[in-house]
Design a binder for these strands. Structure first.
Lengths: 234, 234
DNA sequence: TCAAAAGTGTTCTGCATACACCCATGT
DNA sequence: ACATGGGTGTATGCAGAACACTTTTGA
């Protein structure tokens, strides 16, 4: 293996999902530099020489959102010859699920940071993202499809909800991701039968209707159950 | 983006699964060169400059097995800093499912071919693969886990069976991959209810017991059904 | 008192499970 | 004739689906 074989570049791209109680959103940046200046794009950056793939993803997330400790899933690597005009760049796509109410837009355009490519960052409704830079529409589609699969067999939906949430919020989230309606009573029966939610004893405030109970996801219990063969299914 | 950012190398690695009517097997090569000389390893090669990821995988497969048109699934990209002693090499792992009876060992050590790393290629029982080169044990584990998931929601098991197969072969395959037993009558009821197999009218020959009917998987019908919302579930 | 969403049980249907015997072939 | 795996049906239980009304709050 000679030096000639080390001519490629590798990046990570992140599909950052959030849920605002109405729709599923994705956080996009508007590119302030060429190529694809003024196009909306997935946030991402090159993997640095002394950094693992996971560290690069975390760096992008922290830099853009200020959030660490975020649920992240590697999805697929894209490396078509012409996908980047400046050379052969492979990009390892990921999606992250964040609690949108914890999100605060970081100041952009810090030097040498992933968001230094960006002139703006904004949440977009996942059904209205238009034409993105590079092959990012393809990447987004892969990540969305992966999320749809994942949410049905792993309790990852909770990563998109606040710490304390109502059953209607949970149901609405599933309805939006899976694009189908659930019967309220049957949905609650199923969730209840898993015994993974704990009633916090608190209720919603200042809603102009009967306030709903607030629940929390018991992750520790889930991990124990999983070890003994339990599988989460919606 | 300057030249400095193009210092990495990218390879593909393939977990090639086969099924010999008894066990699930993986095709490994014994490395004839350093690093990891004499270690068993997953077949793989660098992605060439003018070649897509998929083409690189196909090249590895054709070179080693002579088989084209093989079911292949990208799984995960590994790029830890120390994973390759000669530099930063990212590897995009895949698994392939082949009909083991179509497989013929190709002559090894052709120049400039993926198998030029190899002194030997051999099928290994998936439960007895020992310590592999690089991080290939981790890669194998990922691919195996992905296969286990996949086989339960997609009809990929048929890729491991001959064109015409018996229901017992099919059941045994699932039992081995999922490491659990099925009831013969219930298994057949389920398979039958999907109406995806066609009775070829032929039967086994030269078996010292009642010969079994041979079936074929109707892929065209599956693809149609899938479009209208059908989902394969074992 | 009205509007809005929360919360709650029962019936029915269909699918998963459990289970045992006869059949066709080669030796 | 015997050994080996092939092939088949029924009864039971459980989980998913369909379905409507009362409750609690803010305005």
């Amino acid at each position: 293996m000679v030096k000639d074989n080390f001519n490629y570049s590798v990046s990570v791209d992140c599909v950052i999902f959030g849920y605002d109680d109405i729709n599923l959103k994705v956080l996009l940046i508007k590119r302030g530099v060429n190529p694809y200046k003024e196009f909306w794009a997935l946030p991402g950056d090159l993997v640095h020489p002394k950094e693992s793939i996971e560290d690069a993803v975390d760096r992008v997330l922290v830099d853009l959102t200020g959030l660490g400790n975020v649920y992240t899933q590697q999805v697929k690597t894209f490396g078509d010859i012409g996908r980047h005009p400046l050379g052969r760049v492979f990009t390892i796509s990921h999606y992250s699920l964040i609690k949108i109410n914890q999100y605060e837009l970081s100041p952009l355009n810090k030097n040498n940071s992933p968001s230094s490519f960006a002139s703006e960052a904004k949440w977009h409704d996942i059904n209205r993202i238009g034409e993105l830079a590079f092959d990012h529409n393809k990447i987004f589609a892969s990540c969305k499809a992966h999320l749809v699969q994942s949410v049905q067999s792993k309790p990852v939906g909770f990563e998109l909800l606040p710490e304390k949430f109502t059953l209607s919020q949970l149901q609405n989230l599933y309805e939006i991701i899976l694009e189908k309606k659930f019967d309220k009573r049957n949905f609650r029966k199923k969730i209840n039968s898993m015994k993974l939610l704990v009633d916090t004893g608190k209720i919603q405030k200042s809603v102009s209707h009967r306030p709903a109970k607030l629940f929390q996801f018991n992750k520790v219990k889930y991990l124990k159950l999983k070890k003994s063969g339990f599988s989460f299914e919606i």
